[in-house]
């Protein structure tokens, strides 16, 4: 098995290059395992983010055979079988890599739409800033009761669970053509997080969240391409959340008139 890994060292490389690593057998079962095998035994210079190795921490988002995926959750054998991608292509996803033989090699590149710091490590500043932009913290309707939790309906909890499950891995942002084209677009994860607070009956903001994000940088900027839904490792379906934000915003006449101007 061979890994073809995109390398970039600031100060030394002027543009990314590719390096091929030969591995005797599929060492672990996952692409992350293969990368560790390279880093531990062949080449300590290679850099990539990791933490939990169990698809819960969201560290190891990267482009594997031109599909944004978590390296820890991606089985080597599945990639080698070469399932074709159904993503709308753009940018690096669309670029051919010279000498890459998909029959014998797994292609590993950094997550698209983010500047590369080194090798597979990208600068996530834009992603974290976007998250902060949507003010993802609870603004309670009233002071919580002393010494008691606020009651919640089981149904409300179930509705929230999908959105709360987001691990902020940024695969959605890395797969989004709008994030690629529009530098100010907040992106799917931040907007899905806004929806999570919009749907929480304990949060007082409700329509205030719609107003805040009823802009081209916010949910109006999304063209519902749904690449984000296809790559999400946790079935958060950010595109679905954005569609609902659009739908709820359309019901508010005051907002119709004041579009973008609020």
């Amino acid at each position: 098995m061979r890994l073809r890994v995109q390398r970039f060292e600031p100060g030394r490389d002027t543009s990314p290059r590719y390096q091929v690593y030969e591995l005797e057998d599929p060492p672990g079962q996952t692409v992350l395992g293969a990368l560790f095998e390279v880093q531990d035994r062949q080449d300590g210079s290679i850099a990539f983010r990791y933490s939990c190795r169990g698809a819960v921490c969201g560290s190891c988002a990267m482009l594997i055979n031109k599909v944004p995926r978590l390296a820890c959750k991606t089985q080597v054998s599945d990639v080698m079988e070469g399932a074709t991608s159904n993503l709308q292509t753009f940018g690096t996803i669309d670029q051919d890599v010279e000498d890459w033989d998909p029959e014998t090699e797994i292609l590993v590149e950094p997550l698209p739409n983010f500047p590369v710091i080194r090798d597979l490590v990208v600068d996530m500043t834009r992603f974290w800033n976007a998250l902060e932009e949507v003010e993802p913290w609870m603004v309670p309707a009233e002071d919580p009761p002393e010494g008691l939790e606020r009651p919640m309906e089981h149904g409300d909890v179930v509705k929230l669970e999908r959105l709360v499950g987001c691990i902020l891995c940024a695969l959605c942002s890395g797969s989004c053509p709008i994030v690629h084209d529009e530098p100010d677009f907040l992106g799917p994860a931040a907007l899905a997080k806004a929806r999570r607070f919009y749907e929480d009956p304990r949060d007082v903001r409700r329509d205030g969240i719609l107003e805040m994000l009823y802009t081209e940088e916010g949910f109006e900027g999304c063209d519902l391409i749904y690449n984000c839904v296809k790559v999400c490792p946790r079935n958060v379906a950010p595109g679905g959340a954005i569609r609902k934000l659009k739908k709820d915003a359309a019901k508010l006449p005051a907002l119709e008139r004041g579009r973008n101007g609020i």
Partner: peptide, 23 residues
């Protein structure tokens, strides 16, 4: 313990709920 857990609920943690709506 009870205060720390309820405080997390107050800050927004989505806990699973019993039939009576409590954690």
């Amino acid at each position: 313990a009870p205060d720390r857990v309820r405080e997390m609920e107050h800050w927004g943690t989505v806990f699973s709920r019993a039939e009576d709506g409590r954690i």
